[in-house]
């Protein structure tokens, strides 16, 4: 298991991130953005579509190096567990193979039965992704990120397009594992209720180039965040940040 202490505090500074597109003016998407992630912390990025949330995650995953700024320390293999908006499974490998392939070659044969059981994938282990429903495919994608036991789990809208019951179920499973294994989580979501239920900190992003309009620390322990508490906090936030939060809420009532 990677030494989590070596990764945190993880500091991401993006002085400037510009998308250069052929035949179009360059698009400056982030300027003077700074994010510090602490050990065993769940941080939720909230903001309207196109504000640059996924760009931030891509930089953290090491997929985008074309930006002005720095990431310190640079995460090494196995310290970041990525979950994309789409499951992105290898359709030509079985569920179990998809999960195992995230591991380094030497560790690929170690038992993963517990993880499969936790994510209710045991009976699906020999199936191909083409046989899975959307919700199951998401479970596999989550298992693939969790199997490397990352210090930081990066989630890009991982519960989107699931029905509320399935999403709630999966959320509980994942966050149970996260707290059991003492992982930090960076999650992008449109769902403010979801963020309020899970996050230790919320970062609200707005406008272009994006800026952080608020950072909200939530000290209420997760098990005391009742539905009533969530609704009250949501109402308060919506009053304080009408643009960001109302767009988030509107999405919820699709």
């Amino acid at each position: 298991m990677p030494d989590a202490g070596a990764l945190f505090p993880l500091r991401l500074e993006i002085d400037r991130k510009v998308y250069r597109r052929k035949g179009l003016p360059p698009l400056e998407i982030l300027r003077g953005f700074c994010l510090v992630l602490n050990r065993v912390e769940t941080l939720c990025l909230i903001g309207p579509s196109g504000v640059g949330k996924t760009t931030i995650l891509r930089i953290l995953m090491g997929l985008d190096r074309d930006f002005e700024g720095r990431l310190h320390p640079v995460p090494h293999r196995l310290s970041v567990g990525p979950v994309f908006q789409e499951p992105r499974l290898l359709p030509w490998r079985t569920v179990e193979e998809n999960i195992r392939l995230a591991l380094p070659r030497r560790e690929r044969h170690r038992p993963i039965g517990d993880l499969l059981a936790d994510l209710k994938l045991t009976e699906w282990r020999r199936r191909y992704p083409g046989e899975l429903s959307g919700g199951l495919a998401r479970r596999v994608a989550l298992a693939r990120a969790l199997v490397i036991n990352p210090a930081l789990l990066v989630l890009d809208e991982p519960f989107i397009s699931l029905d509320e019951h399935a999403a709630g179920d999966l959320r509980a499973t994942v966050f149970d594992l996260v707290s059991r294994h003492q992982m930090s989580v960076l999650m992008v979501t449109h769902n403010v209720r979801e963020a309020l239920a899970l996050a230790d900190r919320l970062v609200l992003l707005e406008s272009r180039p994006a800026e952080v309009i608020a950072e909200i620390k939530i000290s209420t322990p997760r098990n005391l965040r009742t539905d009533t508490w969530i609704e009250e906090t949501l109402a308060k936030l919506a009053a304080d940040y009408p643009q960001t939060i109302s767009s988030g809420q509107a999405l919820l009532h699709r």
């Binding site: 090491g62 994309f84 992105r88 490397i148």
Partner: peptide, 8 residues
């Protein structure tokens, strides 16, 4: 992108 993120 996925295999880059997982550094296969």
């Amino acid at each position: 992108e996925m295999r880059q993120a997982f550094r296969f």
